[in-house]
Design a protein around this nucleic acid. Sequence first.
RNA 1: GCGGGUGUAACUCAAUGGUAGAGUACCUGCCUUCCAAGCAGGCAACGUGGGUUCGAUUCCCAUCACCCGCUCCA
Length: 514
Amino acid sequence: MDMDKLVSLCKRRGIIFPSSEIYGGLNGFWDYGPLGVELKRNIKDAWWRDNITLRDDMVGIDCSIIMNPKVWEASGHVGGFSDPMVDCRETKERYRADQLHVFRYDLAAISEGRVQIFAVALTGGTVDDARGSLSDRMTNLSRKGHLPIKLKDLPEPEVVEFLSVPVADRDGIVGPSATKPGTLTEPRNFNLMFESHAGAIADEANKVYLRPETAQGIFVNFKNVVDTGRVKIPFGIGQIGKSFRNEINPRNFIFRSREFEQMEIEFFCRPDEAAEWYAYWRKTRFQWYIDHGIKSDKLRLRDHDPDELAFYSTATADIEYEFPFGVSELEGIAHRGDYDLGQHQKFSGKDLTYFDEEKKERYLPHVIEPSAGADRATLAFLCEAYQEDEVGGETRTVLKFHPRLAPIKAAVFPLVKRDGMPEMAEKLYRDLKKHFNVFQDEKGAIGRRYRRQDEAGTPFGITIDGQSITDGTVTFRDRDSCRQWRVPSANAVQALRDLLEGQAVPGGESEGQA
RNA sequence: GCGGGUGUAACUCAAUGGUAGAGUACCUGCCUUCCAAGCAGGCAACGUGGGUUCGAUUCCCAUCACCCGCUCCA
């Protein structure tokens, strides 16, 4: 599957447009068109219904996007995730300043009081980890003649973090891939969160942030829900909503954008049952994608390595999809312990513990967080659905959406535009439209109308022909198999409902439309 | 943010230092009884801003957007 073809189809069929396109677009922002908004809404509705409505242990919430800024101090987004970045002028590489380590030599005795320093980058390493890599790097620099002094003449170095080196001394540092000192820029802050001001006057005192995740709105409402929702642990709170992040580099269509929509669950449970619930959600959420049409082996469930985990998490798994641009994360299921409630308890000074009636015990619940990207899911469903088939020797482009997700559920066609067929089609269309999003098309050849709907992912076509006028039956046509069968017009609403709910297409295998 | 590439109609492409042509799509007719049919007509584009030039869609610069790689993705 070619990403360009999908982007082009999305544009052509009104699924996804570049944001504010007539002004040249805006990097990292996209708009959903008439078909796209239906698709995405169906995905969100399916998620909500399966995870909230149909369950006894889940409730929903819808929090404001802008919250008290202290929320983001507690969550760590203000302090922790504004990573300073360092660029190398020589090699054009970029590093996170907090991951750079430096060999610091005191050359005062042999080099006119100058302190000469060398640096090497590590990914997430500690000072001790850095030592070996730095030694290798020094040997390498020495061999290539980039050192001012022979390696054996150097004094014993001290391993320090880049950020701890005084600014005045930093021009003596050789970058991790550079050959000369002084090519690293000063660290520049990378602001993850969008900032704004609550109130007409913009100053520091009223600075606010657009939320970078929906999760914190759930945590800060935990007490409210417990106090008013008649909920008992174990239970979860779900939320669907927009979030905003200043990604360094938005890329890959709607996969990484700066404004995006999340579908998140925070599931609160007893500490000693958390591992079980983690296993449960890990499995349940993976199956959800399969049940909605991602049946290929492009869907993966990957457990994080221990060194990949956030410090507060004891287990995390990613649901990944093999997109044309690579394998990327659709949803993360994280065992977060009591970290978040603990943080908010600390920062707000409010007691967020839960009294367990059964155990007669008060504790801070542990949390399992299945956090899904609505736009990423939409893209995965699009990629999975996109196919180029052969029908009667002709290639057709078809989006094989699960009927539950398809933007249009059925299209109604008069076979030709005369003999009462358009009138009968119109009536059937009106009847169906009371129940489903259906579409009517009487223009052009019937084959073309079928193909148009194939491209929009419409699972069923209903055609009114000459026989319909005499005996009142209409022809149903299945998108995936192109198979056809007749149904009395009076039963069309129920027949379509059955099909959308997974009833097999007559005369063949169900084609996996369960 | 760096390097490379691309930017012409809704989509896919073409040509050109003298303001652009096609296919598909779309619209209007006619014709059409089941998988992108035919005929006739129609709508519709040089990303943006500068510069060079008598004249720029074409050459140059900048900018914006998209794609690939690096970085990043808490």
